[in-house]
Design a protein around this nucleic acid. Structure first.
Length: 416
RNA sequence: GCGGGUGUAGCUCAGUUGGUUAGAGCGCUAGAUUGUGAUUCUGGAUGUCGCGGGUUCGAGCCCCGUUGCUCGCCCCA
């Protein structure tokens, strides 16, 4: 082993970070299940085609961020760079098109070959929810409510704002796109280099450019709302009315654009100003055209994904689940080792979290027990054993008492 | 892919205009206390100064390259 370091952009998750991840996942799971979403776990790699077809060849994700490899059988595979395409594939592979609506939640690693930064890694973790087969606004409203409940459950509702937009149906979007191209083409010499490329590939992206020169032009650019047809207008109004009736706060941002090709209608992002350049903590939208793009039947879809690493930086201390306080069983001498092991085993069978003080002198074992956050140490010594008892020490107040083995479990459960 | 900052002990960091054996605190460890932790006291070990080359009588310090980390851009959770 030459390098004992993790691959760039990957991290080990342990200690406090592991606790945060577990806490967040637990709250996510409970919230998603309250909305009766079902757990789904799809492979972390798929045929490259699954992502290439759905995300669009020109998207940055496909063109420069995917971990693509060929396996020994010569198949072109890709580590998933996002959730939706894989779930959509699973939806069709398992013939669930016959069982709509389907509501899913999932959690796991996502891979993108990017330059790492704060809140951005090459392997990171997302929590994802999807509703498939509900084309009307009920799905939009519920998926946003689920997001809002989740973030409030984490205690970060105050630090996060919901930005909302409608990208319209394809008719509205096509005419808006043309209007944008026409408008910006008149200012080609003033546009930044990046935006000139966007003009070719994805003109709507110009709208969230950070370049100052671009921003001056954007102020007077056509607004998407002017190009909504009646259906889009009504749809968006209904989503907003739903949020109002739920008391969910939002900010309409008509410059909000989604990176991936398959979005339509509702698009949203929950952002924070506390994470530097990576402000988006949860984002998603409606993707009614996706299934068809993959060669399946027309199926409506909407969902979002939340970034675990980013949320872990924001989570309130009181939402982090307390580390478990075990009981540590310490044999006093080698003679009592077997008896101690048996006592620990019995405690575990009775449901107690139990650890062993394996080695070292008494001082060392006590120290380790203390460090492991133990509530009690059970000292198993020859003297006590002859009386059918053990010494139980409370590590919080230092008191200790000799307890008959027969009474051990009831004694401890009374004190925990 | 582009641009900036940075790298000394497990952690947080000192280290003079380049000058012998590279330091502190925390943590770790041994003992005081061979059946008792979080307090105290006394000892101990921390290290390829990221890596490779160069300049120099001499480099942790200067120069070049490289790599990791980090911040920003692109893009995104």
């Amino acid at each position: 082993m030459k390098k004992l370091q993790p691959v760039r952009g990957t991290h080990d998750i342990l200690g406090d970070k592991a606790l945060r991840f577990r806490s967040i996942y637990e709250i996510f799971r409970r919230t998603a299940e309250k909305y009766h979403h079902h757990f789904i776990d799809t492979p972390i790699f798929e045929f490259t085609e699954v992502f290439r077809r759905t995300l669009g060849d020109t998207s940055d994700v496909v063109s420069k961020e995917m971990y693509v490899f060929e396996d020994r059988g010569g198949e072109e595979l890709t580590l998933r760079p996002e959730y939706t395409a894989g779930i959509a594939r699973a939806f069709m592979s398992n013939a669930l098109t016959q069982s709509v609506p389907c509501k899913f939640y999932s959690y796991g690693p996502i891979f993108r070959y990017e330059r790492p930064q704060k809140g951005r890694m090459r392997q990171f973790h997302q929590m994802d929810v999807e509703i498939l087969g509900v084309p009307n606004v009920q799905a939009d409203i519920e998926i946003l409510a689920l997001a809002s409940d989740f973030l409030k459950g984490l205690g970060i509702g105050q630090h996060v704002t919901l930005e909302l937009n409608s990208l319209g149906d394809s008719e509205s979007r096509t005419s808006y796109r043309e209007a944008l191209i026409q408008y910006f083409s008149g200012f080609k010499k003033d546009l930044s280099e990046d935006s000139l490329k966007r003009l070719e590939k994805n003109p709507m992206r110009i709208l969230d450019s950070k370049d100052e020169g671009d921003r001056a032009l954007i102020v007077n650019a056509p607004r998407i709302a002017e190009f909504y047809n009646d259906y889009t207008k009504g749809f968006f109004a209904d989503v907003i009315a739903g949020l109002d009736s739920f008391g969910i706060e939002y900010k309409v941002n008509d410059r909000l654009v989604r990176g991936l090709d398959y979005y339509s209608h509702t698009a949203f992002e929950f952002t924070t100003d506390q994470l530097g350049a990576q402000g988006t903590v949860l984002a998603g939208g409606r993707y009614d055209g996706l299934m068809q793009q993959m060669g399946g039947p027309e199926t409506a879809g909407i969902g979002w994904a939340a970034g675990m690493e980013r949320l872990a930086e924001l989570i309130a201390a009181d939402k982090i689940i307390a580390p478990i306080r075990p009981i540590t069983v310490v044999p006093v001498g080698t003679d009592s080792q077997n008896a101690a092991l048996k006592i620990a085993h019995d405690l575990r069978l009775a449901g107690f979290h139990t650890d062993m003080g394996y080695s070292g002198n008494m001082g060392k074992r006590m120290k380790r027990a203390h460090k492991s956050n133990s509530a009690f140490v059970i000292l198993v010594g020859e003297d006590e054993l002859t009386r059918g008892a053990v010494m139980v020490k409370n590590l919080d107040n230092g008191s200790q008492e000799e307890i008959l083995l027969d009474h051990l479990q009831s004694y401890i459960s009374g004190k925990l």
